[in-house]
């Protein structure tokens, strides 16, 4: 079999393979019925950018159903929201600050290169927040991500604003840092292995951990992660399962209660 355009015949020579980030299970925390973001009025999120839908691992094909169902809910939620919401006033000072922030990379010279920081961040998350994680590596990742964040405040960009990928990357970098830090800090807190999260130092699934989500928030300087209890499985769903199937996932207490009424 030949792989175009590389022309490698894998029956004759070895083929290089490697893992890659394919999907992000976490995302913006939303109300399930309206897809409204928790704590940010007027923001609605659906699809891969929203969190909480797929649990610890997304099954193939499920993101399409996610988009159809929650895309519709987000649209209806947003339409409902604008009926009653008043425009949020934005001060001239806030607009000026945002414009200055955007211009800032052009005003610096000899600062950090956004592409280099991006590559370093990729290296860190690939090596230390990858498929199989350990507490020590995650700790190292969190420290290194913080260093990149510091350096990213000093990014300088060449050229103009028109279709300038280096300029775009300077801002994408902020979002990448946010995702990387949230992922690493949630992963170090979750001392078990579940779905797409494997901890070499905690290789077992632990039913107690099924009862919590990790919620990350950002204060402009760093990400903090807190544990938030999950709603209990409703009784009508609980009853659909053979109880022995649930024993692997639920604590003895949860099984004894038999779902939430």
């Amino acid at each position: 079999m030949e792989f175009l355009p590389t022309q490698i015949d894998i029956t004759k020579e070895p083929m290089e393979v490697g893992p890659t980030c394919h999907y992000v299970m976490g995302g913006v925390e939303v109300e399930p019925d309206t897809a409204a973001a928790v704590g940010v009025p007027g923001l609605f999120a659906a699809g891969e950018v929203a969190g909480g839908m797929h649990g610890s691992n997304r099954l193939g094909g499920n993101s399409l159903s996610d988009l159809l169902v929650f895309g519709r809910r987000a649209g209806m939620g947003a339409a409902e929201y604008v009926k009653s919401a008043k425009a949020v006033p934005v001060s001239d000072a806030a607009i000026k600050a945002a414009a200055e922030r955007i211009q800032a990379p052009f005003t610096r010279s000899g600062g950090e290169n956004s592409y280099s920081l991006h590559a370093e961040l990729q290296e860190i998350t690939h090596n230390l927040v990858g498929i199989i994680r350990t507490g020590a590596e995650l700790k190292e990742a969190i420290e290194k991500i913080a260093e990149i964040r510091k350096r990213s405040a000093n990014v300088s960009v060449a050229g103009g604003r028109k279709f300038n990928p280096g300029f775009h990357l300077a801002f994408d970098l902020d979002n990448m840092l946010l995702v990387a830090e949230s992922t690493a800090k949630s992963a170090i807190s979750r001392e078990e292995s579940r779905g797409g999260h494997t901890r070499d130092d905690f290789p077992q699934l632990d039913s107690k951990w099924r009862q919590v989500n990790h919620i990350a928030s950002f204060d402009g300087k760093e990400v903090t992660v807190r544990k938030q209890p999950l709603p209990a499985l409703p009784k009508e769903l609980f009853d659909l399962f053979d109880v022995h199937e649930l024993e692997k996932y639920m604590t003895a207490d949860e099984i004894a209660k038999g779902g939430a009424r």
Partner: peptide, 11 residues
């Protein structure tokens, strides 16, 4: 080239 020499090269 973009990452090392022409940061604003549009592609």
């Amino acid at each position: 080239v973009q990452a090392t020499q022409m940061g604003d090269l549009a592609v």
